[in-house]
């Protein structure tokens, strides 16, 4: 591989180049504006966030139930009338209650469902990091005589085998699935 012949600095340079390339590509791709949304497409994106009231857990966009069709009809009409997404959502909530939206509201008690996961993950990461930090420099556990004997025996076997085997190419240890550095 090309990388094998490069010195360390060259290899790092390749990484930096990669990161720059990826960054630029992502920037271009992420900021690329899509075609302007037609009324139907905007209505569809609103429909995808509204729960079909008479179905089990699918959105109004996905359902062919009568209630879903009625909501789609209303949403399209209101989108054409120039209402915003929030206004349309608010109207539906005023009729069906907050359960009509597939996203739980982020105010009130339901805010917990949004807040708990990131907080829990952050707390767990902090806990693990501090446990790891505390372990730094901890003394290695003592070793029993049994273990020393096992290690010595295994090493002796290996030395004997290496001595008896034919000289081999420096291909690294003969283990299944062994990963040899490129």
């Amino acid at each position: 591989m090309i990388a094998r012949r490069l010195p360390d600095a060259g290899r790092w340079a390749l990484w930096v180049v990669l990161l720059v390339v990826v960054g630029v590509a992502l920037g271009v791709g992420a900021s690329r504006p899509g075609p302007p949304l037609t009324a139907v497409q905007r209505a569809q994106s609103i429909d995808a966030q509204v729960r079909c009231p008479s179905c089990e857990d699918i959105s109004v966009a996905d359902s062919s139930a009568s209630t879903a069709q009625a909501i789609r009809q209303l949403v399209v009409a209101r989108v054409r009338a120039g209402q915003s997404d929030q206004q349309i959502d608010a109207f539906l909530v005023s009729r069906y209650g907050p359960g009509i939206l597939l996203r739980p509201p982020d105010t009130g008690v339901t805010a917990w469902v949004w807040v708990l996961p990131p907080v829990a993950v952050a707390a767990a990461v902090a806990g693990l990091a501090s446990a790891l930090w505390r372990r730094r420099g901890a003394a290695a556990p003592a070793v029993s005589e049994d273990d020393r004997a096992l290690v010595d025996r295994a090493l002796a076997q290996r030395a004997a085998a290496a001595g008896a085997g034919t000289g081999d190419t420096p291909a690294g240890p003969r283990g299944a699935g062994s990963v040899v550095a490129p």
Binding site: A140, P141, A142, V143, D147, R148, V151, D152, L155, Q157, R158, A159, A161, A162, G165, T166, G167, D168, T169, P170, A171, G172, P173, R174
Partner: peptide, 18 residues
């Protein structure tokens, strides 16, 4: 171990704590 790779085998770990 058979013909273990002769190339850069690591030195056997000294009888150090496991």
């Amino acid at each position: 171990a058979g013909p273990a790779g002769a190339g850069s085998p690591p030195p056997p770990p000294a009888p150090a704590p496991a």
